[in-house]
Structure formats: structure tokens, C-alpha cells
């Protein structure tokens, strides 16, 4: 087949934006729309409820102060990952340790959220106890699922980075997805917890 190629392959188009980057960005846009749908549904339901009933009397209020710590951890994780990326680009030998630190901060966020869920469940806020509970577990749970998936991918990226086999396309995808998880959280935190 190569013998009859009249149009030499080097003339192929150089991608303006690498395919992995473009594909990931489009995927993230679709994901943002998913959370936009959830948050708008929550906002409309909440605005339609009668005054003084959200959260309902007798049900726990969401621990906004305690969650502020988680929020800081998650934002820090995003910043550390970006720092790790800069180091990796400079081929620094400590880059993969910085990336692992970002992973650790992210994992701490998910773990602390889990602790918070257990406490809230024991206080009587369940998926079926009130619309607030339903929306809380749905939105925060949806975010947690994305965070867990991103953590798995980030761990994989760390292992490849430690072995020196990481491709820039894959690392870009992981980073973009993690930044999406990180930046989605403050919006959720502001809309759901307050």
C-alpha cells in the first residue's frame, strides 16, 4: 500500500488543537451541562417551596462550615496538580511526587465528604426524607462519582509518570477532567450548602 502513495504523508494537516484536547474539552462541556441541569432543578425546586421550609424544621442543616475545609483541600489539589504539570513539562524528577500529593488531597476531599454523609445520614437526612435531602445526595453524589473516576484516572497517570511513559494527551485529559471536578465544586457548594 505504501508503494502507491502519491501524496506524501508529511503533507497531512497539523491539528490546530490536538485531538485529545479537543475531545476532552467537548466532553467536559457536556458534563458541565449535566451539572447545570441538576443545579437549576435544585434552584427552581427550592425557590418554589414555602418560606422557612428549606431545610425543613427538625432536619439537620448542612454543615457548611465543616465543608469549607473540604473545599479548600479540593481547590488546593487542583493548584498542586497544575504545579505538578509545570514541573513535568520541565522534566523535573519530583514532578510525580507533586502529582501524587494532588491525588492525596483529592482523595482526602472524597474521604471527608464520605464522613460527612455518614454523619448526615445518622442525623436523619436521607435521600427520601425531604427534597433537600434528595437534591443534596443527588448533586453531591453525582460530583463524588466524577471525583472518584477522576481519581482513578489520575492515579493511572501518576503510575505512568513515575515510569516515564506518560503521554501528554492522556495527562491533558486527566488534568482537564480534574480541573472540571475542582471548579464544579465551589458552584455546588455555594448553591447547595447555603
Amino acid at each position: 500500500m505504501e508503494a502507491v502513495v502519491t501524496n506524501p504523508v508529511p503533507e497531512r494537516r497539523k491539528p490546530v488543537v490536538p485531538s485529545a484536547v479537543l475531545g476532552t474539552l467537548i466532553f467536559v462541556i457536556a458534563e458541565v451541562m449535566f451539572f447545570a441541569g441538576l443545579i437549576s432543578a435544585h434552584t427552581i425546586s427550592r425557590a418554589g417551596s414555602l418560606p422557612g421550609l428549606w431545610p425543613m424544621p427538625g432536619q439537620p442543616t448542612l454543615p457548611a462550615e465543616a465543608t469549607a475545609l473540604n473545599t479548600v483541600l479540593l481547590l488546593l489539589s487542583g493548584a498542586v496538580l497544575f504545579f505538578g504539570y509545570r514541573l513535568w513539562k520541565k522534566q523535573s524528577p519530583v514532578a510525580h511526587w507533586v502529582t501524587l500529593a494532588a491525588w492525596g488531597l483529592g482523595a482526602a476531599f472524597v474521604a471527608l465528604q464520605g464522613v460527612e454523609w455518614v454523619a448526615l445520614l445518622s442525623q436523619g437526612l436521607t435521600l427520601r426524607s425531604s427534597p433537600l435531602g434528595s437534591f443534596f445526595y443527588l448533586i453531591v453524589g453525582g460530583h463524588a462519582v466524577h471525583a472518584l473516576a477522576a481519581l482513578v484516572a489520575m492515579f493511572w497517570a501518576w503510575m505512568q509518570m513515575a515510569r516515564g511513559q506518560l503521554t501528554s494527551g492522556f495527562f491533558f485529559g486527566v488534568q482537564t477532567f480534574w480541573y472540571f471536578v475542582v471548579l464544579m465544586w465551589p458552584v455546588i457548594y455555594a448553591r447547595v450548602y447555603f
Partner: peptide
């Protein structure tokens, strides 16, 4: 761009 809210 439109499928997200429906999936939600």
C-alpha cells in the same frame, strides 16, 4: 450541548 440537562 443540550443533552446534559436531560441526562440530569
Amino acid at each position: 450541548a443540550s443533552v446534559g440537562p436531560l441526562v440530569a
